[in-house]
Amino acid sequence: MANLHRFANPNRFLRLSRAILPWSASLTVLLFIVGLYFALFASPADYQQGETVRIMYVHVPSAWIAMLCYSVMAAASATALIWRHPLADITARAAAPIGAGFTLIVLATGSLWGKPMWGTWWVWDARLTSVLILFFLYLGHIALSRAFDDPTRGARAAAVLALVGFVNVPIIKFSVDWWNTLHQPASVSRLAAPAIDPAMLRPLLLMALAFTAYFVTLLLLRIRAELTSRKIRALQLAQASAE
């Protein structure tokens, strides 16, 4: 536990993030260049879906990150509630807008993919509905954690919301297996071999890595921004009480 507390120390985190950020940022740029090259040029059209398969290369990684981000947020919220680590609330608060952004991308690109392939922008099937709920959970978390001037006051309620909403994550993942949906089942994470040809799996995984590196970079940046604004607040309060 002593080790965990060391990482929870904000100054230690700042030093660590300053060491990681240049690497994760350059990795993001590099992976996006390679990933986009494969996604847009060096990959074939699908035998059924034609060129629209290229939407998959941004839609599916966004969906993975949207769920990863929620898991990070839920883990941070549990840590905040149980161990009261100073960084945990900050992490959850920094993660929520990122998750909302990725979920927005999933919904919009899915809609733009569904129209030409399924023949509809939107249906209320279990997969699409549970992802929409994920989006509202993120918005709720953002609103709740920013509802008070003092950021520590909304944090407890937001952490409970994040944990309660976590039941939605397995529902999203398994909705396509548990119920009949218009959305197709998983292609990559299934017990059998992936149902994607290597020529299409390559751009998908490269883009997924690029999105992950981007997520790490952005999360570190946002945590730093959050730490800075807490420091400003503490200084202003100290000054106000000194005067």
């Binding site: 939407i55 941004v58 990122i98 991308i105 919009a108 690109t109 733009l112």
Partner: peptide, 20 residues
């Protein structure tokens, strides 16, 4: 399918850049 693919990619790029 340009009318669906390019808006999808453009929107993704916009959201990612805007967040950053």
């Amino acid at each position: 399918h340009a009318a669906f693919i390019w808006p999808a990619l453009g929107l993704t790029a916009t959201v990612l850049i805007l967040m950053l």
